[in-house]
């Protein structure tokens, strides 16, 4: 980090003095120097005018304010609801990509969930809806974007890594310990998944969950054709509608955590996959 304080520009030196005077950072000697100079005092007055003008921000409209507060509280509720489940079902350290279930069913669960996700992506792709998402300004902060925050000259980050950490973009700072949404018990989840492999199932078989990461991002939510009344968080998007073990289900992805889940109309999590 280079320091831009030193400058051969006398006008800039005057501006530095005026700003320091206005902000209360001037030494007694500097204050005396400013007060003895009509030019510097005029600059102080102009800076004060700028400061007052900038601080004079129109109040936030009520609608966006309430929507913002509601979104924050909804996120709080979601995290609160997920916390006990995560605490009760720690992820095995050797295989962190899948939500904790009985280890002997690990491969099957991974395959099923990955297949569901792929079906969702393929379904969305079939709709021809792979456009950009720039207008989705209400979505969560894009970690990739935040991570690339550099200033106009490209010489330094505009925000510190600590700042990035606060919005959840630090690499590796978040452990992959989230578990299924909906608080389903392990036994019920496993029982549901136990008989997934039906003959003739069109679900593609993936060997590695990492294969999912190479898939394109679906951009448009798919409206279920059946009665699906499960409330979704703002961060969740519907990828596709599938028939899962004879039950209509919806594949949902959390755009923040990346967790992909298959939910039935009663919000039961039929399968889930960590990113």
């Amino acid at each position: 980090m280079s320091d831009e304080t030193l400058s051969p520009d006398p006008e800039h030196d005057g501006a530095l003095l005026a700003a320091a005077y206005l902000d209360g950072h001037a030494t007694p000697e500097e204050r005396a120097r400013v007060e003895a100079s009509p030019q510097l005092m005029a600059m102080v007055t102009t800076f004060a005018q700028v400061r007052d003008g900038l601080a004079d921000v129109p109040p936030a409209p009520v609608g966006p304010r309430e929507r913002g507060v509601a979104a924050a509280l909804a996120e709080f509720d979601r995290l609160q609801a997920a916390a006990p489940v995560a605490a009760a079902a720690p992820v095995a350290p050797t295989a962190p990509n899948v939500v904790p279930m009985r280890s002997r069913r690990w491969g099957k669960v991974l395959t099923v969930a990955a297949g569901l996700a792929l079906v969702g992506v393929v379904g969305v792709a079939a709709l021809g809806s792979m456009g950009g998402s720039d207008q989705d300004s209400s979505s969560a902060v894009d970690p990739a974007e935040a991570r690339t925050a550099v200033d106009a000259n490209g010489d330094a980050p505009l925000v510190s890594q600590e700042a990035l950490d606060t919005v959840g973009v630090a690499g590796g700072s978040e452990g992959g310990t989230e578990t299924t949404a909906g608080g389903q018990s392990e036994s019920s989840t496993v029982a549901t998944i136990g008989s997934i492999d039906e003959p003739g199932s069109p679900v593609p078989q993936l060997e590695q969950s990492s294969d999912l990461r190479t898939l394109p991002e679906p951009k448009v939510a798919v409206a279920p054709s059946f009665s699906f009344e499960c409330p979704l968080a703002d961060t969740q998007e519907i990828l596709a509608e599938v028939t899962y073990q004879g039950t209509p289900a919806v594949v949902v992805r959390d755009t923040v955590t990346g967790v992909i889940s298959a939910l039935d109309s009663q919000c039961t999590v039929l399968a889930s996959l960590q990113p």
């Binding site: 980090m1 280079s2 320091d3 831009e4 304080t5 030193l6 400058s7 006008e11 800039h12 501006a15 530095l16 005026a18 700003a19 320091a20 902000d23 950072h25 600059m43 102009t46 800076f47 005018q49 700028v50 400061r51 900038l54 330094a156 980050p157 505009l158 925000v159 510190s160 890594q161 600590e162 700042a163």
Partner: peptide, 22 residues
């Protein structure tokens, strides 16, 4: 701390920025 730049740079940029606005 927020912008991860030296203190002197902050002072300089604030002074220049206010100067341009003024």
């Amino acid at each position: 701390d927020t912008l991860d730049v030296p203190l002197g740079t902050v002072k300089s940029r604030i002074a220049r920025g206010r100067g341009m606005l003024g």
